[in-house]
Each structure stands twice: as C-alpha cells, then as structure tokens.
Design a binder for these strands. Structure first.
Lengths: 342, 342
DNA sequence: TTGAAAGCGCTAACAC
DNA sequence: GTGTTAGCGCTTTCAA
C-alpha cells in the first residue's frame, strides 16, 4: 500500500483522465461500468485515499462540524458530545472538538479557530456559552454570519442560530412544587452556574416557592463556586450554612453532583434521607444510582435533544427551512431521596 | 467584518503582492516593519482569516490530530480526551474526535477516515483498540505507516507506534496483596474487559493470589457484560454469584463503576463495608466519593499520562527521537471500603 | 525587501 | 462517456 497517491497517479495507471477518476470518486453516473471498475481496481490496489484538503479547497466544505464544549469531562456534557458525534458521523460529518473552558476570551478564540478551519456549522454544547449581557454574545452572532450555529440547552434569538432546549424552568418548578407538596417548607436551592439554563432553573424554583408563599429574600440560595467534582467541598458549604443557623430540610440542586454533595452532607451529619433531608438532583446521570438512598433527579432527555439538534442541523445544511427554537419537557425520576407526596 | 476574504483581497487593499501577505501571515522576518503593519492593519480591518484548506493543501498538514475513543461518555475516557484536547491545543494543534464504539470494523473505518482527513497523528485513547490476536492490529500498523500513532494505556510494539501506559499489573497486584494482608482470603475479581489493560490487571490480581496460595480455578473471576452505567445490573450479578453458594468477602474491580456495583450489592444485602465486604476500584474517579463509605481506588495518574503522551507526540512531530514506550506507576488511594492492614 | 509564478490535489464547466 | 482546463487560496522558490 503506497502512500500519498494522487488522482493523477491513478489516472495514469488506469489509462484514463483525472476527470474520470474524479467522477468515479464522486459516484457520478456518467461513467461506463467498465471504466469504473478499472479505476476502482487501481485505487484499491494502491490503497488510494483522496486528499481532503484539495477537495475542501474547491468545495469550500470539509464535511466537518465544530463542537464547542466548556469541559468534556463533565458527565453531562461528555454524554452530549458523545451522542452528537455519533449522530453527525452517521450523517457523513466529522467533528472537530474544542474544549473551551469557561472563559469568554478562550471561547471567542475557539470560535475563530473553528471558523478558520472551515467547519460547516458550530454546535455549542451547554448553556454556558450564552451570556446575560447581550453584547457578550456577539461572538456567536458573528459566527452565525458564516455558518449555522446550533445551541444545545440554551437560547439565543439571532439569524442563523438554532436553539434546542429542555424546559428547565418547568422541570424545576414542578420539582420544587412536588417537594413542597410532600411537606417541606425550607427548601434550599443549590447551584453553581448563572448560565442561561442555570437562570431558568433558578426561576423555576423561585416560581414554585413564591406560589406557595415560601419565597424568602435570598437566604435559601446557595451558590457553589468550587470544583464540580469535589463532593466534599459541596457538603462542606452546606455544613457551613447550617452552622450559621439556617434551617433547611430539602435541597434542590442544579445538577446531580451538587445533589450528591447534599447527600454527603446528610450522611456526615447523621441526617436521615429523605425524612430529615429531601434531595432532588438534575440530569438523571449515572450518579443517581451511586449513592444510598438513590437520588431523585430530573431527566432532561439529552438523547432526544441531541437527535433533534442533529436533524435540525442536517435540514439547515440542506437548505431547508427549520424551526429556530425547539423546547422539550423533562421528567422527574423518583428515587429514594424524596418523600412521596402526602 | 466581511466574510471569505482571500489573500488576494488583502494584497489588493494593502497595495502589496500576495507573497508579502503570505509572509506576514507566516511571521517571516524579511518584511519591513512598515509593510507588515500596513498588511496587518488591513487584515484586522476586514477580519480576515486564512483558509485552512488552501494552506493544508500546500503544506500537507492541517495541524490537526485525530483522537479515537470508543466511548467518550465513559468517565475515564472522557477525562483523557479532555486532557489531551487541551494539551494539544496549547501546542497549536486541533483535535478531530472519533467515538468509534467497540467494534473492530468501525474502528478501522474511523481510522481510514482520519487518515483521509490528513491528520498529523492519531491518538488511541484506551486499551480496547489493541487486540490479542495480532492480525487484528493490522489497522494500527497500517495507520502508523502514514502518521505516528499514540497509544494511551495500551502497548503495541510496531514502527511509529508510541505507547504510554500505567503499570496496571503492578497496581492490581499491590492492591490484591494489600487486601490479602488485611485478612481477606476470598477475593472476587470483577471485570468487564479483556483489553490489553484489562488483561494486565487480571494478571496482577492472579499473581497476588497465587503468591498467597489463594488462587482458585476461575471460580472467583466474574466477567460483567452489561452496560457500564448500570450499577444495579452489576450488583445483581454479584447477588447471583452469592446465591449460587460462592462465598467472598472482598471484591477487586477493574474500574470504579464495577466497584460501585459491589458496594450496591453490599448495601442491598445488609453487608457491612469494609468489615464484611472490602472493595477496591480502579481509576480513582469522581465516583469514589459518591458512595458511603467512600471507595478505595487506584489512581493511575491519567493527567500525567496525557501530558507525557502529548509531549512525546510533539517530539515525534518535530522529528526528534522519542521513547517507544513509557510506563508510569499507579497509586492506591485508601478510603472507607477497605480495612487497614493488620 | 518585494513580486511573479509555479504548484498543492481536486471539482466542475465545457468541449469533443 | 470521456478529456481538457480553469480555478479554489495558499506557500514557496526564484528573480529583481
């Protein structure tokens, strides 16, 4: 198997022109069966693979999609990347992955990089790419001027930007309502992100609390800033809250990691779950079955979201008119950390 | 900001030739400060980004590394991908990610695809890419004929193939020895992969058992075939083993997920950990702190491995002579699922 | 220090 | 059906 053959080499060996080779390569119908076979034969024999650059140069597309993701080692984001990558490939596209971190500057850089690599579209995985201050979202609008931009779990209304989201607001509101209905009044909200989705979740919690007349001025809101893998630090923060005299018998967390922090806190302090402390997480990840009792969590239908995102993207790339926004509802999966409604 | 500017546009606006623009682009020293500034100015004003294809066509490199990974949603692999992607980018390379699944056929296809995309190297993340039957590894040797192939956690001796591994054999042997020293005699080995690394781990366990005169003919080996996220199925398998009359008071697992299955099994059956059942996992992942008691596990220094892999790759790409194999030792992190040595 | 021009490997008109 | 040829945007000699 020789390396770096070109279309010229093949055409020579097969005794045809490069145009014919190109036609065979692209499955053009106007090649006689005989010639096709002859060319294919030569290609096979020499293990020829076309040079994607040259092809890309002419076509100005590499059949490659850029995926941006703040941290692909995050359980939730990793899963999303996994689904998306598979779906794209089954559609004949490859994925250029960029783990951007959470800093705006590096996100902008990654974006430029992907654009310069001539990706056909950019997928932003996770809601942390959208900023509250609209001017900070300029980098997305700029990118959308070049290629379609797909948002997973975030919304930005702009031309050529498509948003696929789970209704985090509704899910959180329902979760909080159910916990209230089960008799809890002092429900702490534990979160670590002010992203789009983060704000929607918080709003859902607040709506439910307000509805029940339980909303207090920020006392029961705990923002966690440590590592998303450091369960002990999470538990530690709750201990501190408690030691400062704040009572709570329920925790609603913005993700399963944080919820596990609450479970750990209860274990360390001998609190019985769910009787003395109820906990609800978010994402319905692997983590829900790791603890004892197991974690009630909200399933936000990640796979469905990814499927829909990919389908929408393929539509857009084919020039079809597609919906700019799609909202899917989540589902609460009850496990051992919550009481049944009374 | 105009889109799709070319070097021609810039040269025109700046009143220089395309060669000069190209020189500025590539930081050539033989451009007068004045001209450089003028060109840079124009580029800036029009937001010009060079076309990577065209560049790649001439240079025959896209500064892109292919990463193959069976399942990027696996906690361990995801983390490796994350580290590697970051390190590569800090070295000026991008990453084309391929989640291949565990099937040889699709691995071969992914490999071809990456090669045809003209990646500068291919990194195989995880040991499941190496097959016991050597003819099955042909696809790797073929790839290595074109670009350097880097193996994370696997070894294949072949030209242009570089292996970076953790000494799984030694780690497992030490883990088993310690558990034996703590008084256990009936230690079950729980695993789910016959990959290179999987076999090394198993060999380590067996060596320790043999050394202590405790090795039995396959009775205490449990191979798990279900989903790597289904903790209940894992626990279920152990329950079945027990109900069949096999006694064990220790479990050494090939990864933390499986170890958690053992913990779950103990909880379901009211066995006290670590007194009635000791458990050791592998990878020292996030999962170790999720359960109660927390999981003793083997840290295989993933970040170090990734750093070394990247450094080696950069050396190879620069034409330096690099070691074909590097072995790092792991470390047992003691937590609550094991007894102290008596 | 700069410019002109020849590729890099492929696609797609356009001829035959 | 098949061949010829002009790009695609960039890098890199070679001259000036």
């Amino acid at each position: 198997m020789m390396t770096n053959m070109t279309i010229y080499d093949i055409s020579e060996k097969a005794g045809v022109s490069i145009a014919t080779v190109s036609r065979v390569l692209n499955g053009s119908s106007s090649v006689s069966e005989k010639t096709r076979k002859k060319v294919l034969d030569v290609m096979d024999r020499y293990g020829y693979t076309p040079n994607a650059f040259a092809r890309g140069l002419g076509l100005n597309t590499m059949k490659t999609i850029g995926i941006m993701c703040a941290d692909s080692s995050d359980l939730y984001l990793a899963k999303a990347v996994y689904y998306i990558e598979q779906l794209l490939r089954s559609n004949g596209y490859d994925s250029l992955l960029c783990c951007t971190g959470y800093d705006l500057k590096t996100k902008e850089q990654s974006m430029d990089l992907l654009i310069s690599k001539k990706v056909d579209s950019i997928i932003l995985v996770g809601s942390n790419f959208i900023y509250e201050q609209d001017s900070d979202n300029k980098y997305i609008r700029d990118a959308a001027a070049e290629v379609p931009v797909m948002l997973l779990n975030a919304v930005l209304k702009a031309p050529n930007v498509y948003s696929i989201v789970s209704d985090d607001y509704a899910s959180m509101r329902e979760a909080a309502s159910q916990m209230i209905a089960s008799g809890r009044k002092d429900i702490l909200y534990f979160y670590n992100s002010a992203s789009y989705s983060g704000r929607r979740k918080l709003a859902g919690y607040r709506a439910a609390m307000r509805e029940a007349g339980l909303l207090r001025e920020n006392g029961l809101l705990q923002f966690y800033t440590g590592s998303h893998e450091d369960i002990h630090a999470m538990a530690g923060q709750l201990e501190k809250v408690k030691s400062e005299g704040l009572f709570f018998n329920g925790v609603i967390a913005a993700d399963d990691n944080l919820a596990l922090g609450a479970v750990k806190y209860a274990q360390k302090n001998g609190l019985k779950i769910p009787e003395e402390l109820s906990v609800i997480g978010y994402n319905n990840s692997l983590l829900t079955t790791c603890c004892d009792p197991e974690l009630t969590s909200i399933d936000n239908k990640l796979e469905t979201l990814c499927q829909h995102l990919t389908a929408t993207l393929m539509g857009v790339l084919n020039g079809e008119k597609m919906p700019e926004e799609a909202v899917f509802s989540g589902e609460i999966i009850h496990r051992g950390t919550t009481l049944l409604q009374s």
